[in-house]
Amino acid sequence: MKIFKALGSGCHRSLKVWKGILIFWFISLSLVSLVAFPMKGIMKTGFGQSAITGKLLNGIDVEVLSDLGAVYKSLTHSFSAGLLLLLLLWLLINAFLTGGLFNSLKSNDEKFSAGEFFRASARYFLPFMVITLIISAILILLALILIVIPMGGVASPDNPNESVPWLILIISVSLYILISQVFVLVADYARAWQVKNEKPACFRALGFGFSRSFRRFLSSFPMMLIIWLVQTMFVLLVLKVIGNWKPASGFGVFGLFLLSQVLLYIRFLLKAWRYGSVTSLKELNDPLPSSEATVNI
């Protein structure tokens, strides 16, 4: 019952901060455009005034792309370097903006204020960055232990049983998804605690996150699984829609752009729903014994 109450409250809170999510979306679009537009420029230069671009109307044509020759190489270099830069930048910006978002989500009825959003973003940047780095490191380590190492052990072509690597992969990935949700929960609890306690204390926040995640495991974890399931289904839907739609007119392409950005906005909304639900669940569980309200680590 508590789970659904928290999910409902999270939904309400996330919708309430739609302007904050708009900021998220806008910064994301601007940042990605910085990488994508030069790539578009490179392609434009590569194709020049050729009429061959018509061959690309049905989708990627490896022959046409490979005929770009040196331009194709610079395109792939731009993509890999740009993506890496983007991930690093987004790591920082995400840590910054989530501070504001969590702060806006902590109350069910306060009105959203852009000024307060950015103030909170600045205030909590460092602790949120530390929380993000530590939990991300744990998740990478977890992937290494649960997926890379077991797969490395069994994926050898010398393994006479061909089905075993697949079985191990399915089990490993499933385990990773399940366990990683616990650490995502820890990060969310820690950030919710941090914005409630205002004074930057990232390690205390993490301590609270771990403590609350495990003490309230039976209510918190299923909620995270529900959210994960909804988000995953949404991403699959997006892949299906965006991946398969190949508009052949300028109007259609504009429609594709609008649709993809609306879907991305919904994606950010779903993320905020998770933040709001965890914040709400924390509050629902908060009239706790005094020893649990603040944690000594």
């Binding site: 990605v32 790539m39 392609m43 965006i242 300028g250």
Partner: peptide, 10 residues
């Protein structure tokens, strides 16, 4: 190219 660029951004 615009379609490619849009999909890349998304």
């Amino acid at each position: 190219l615009r379609r490619f660029s849009d999909k890349l951004i998304s």
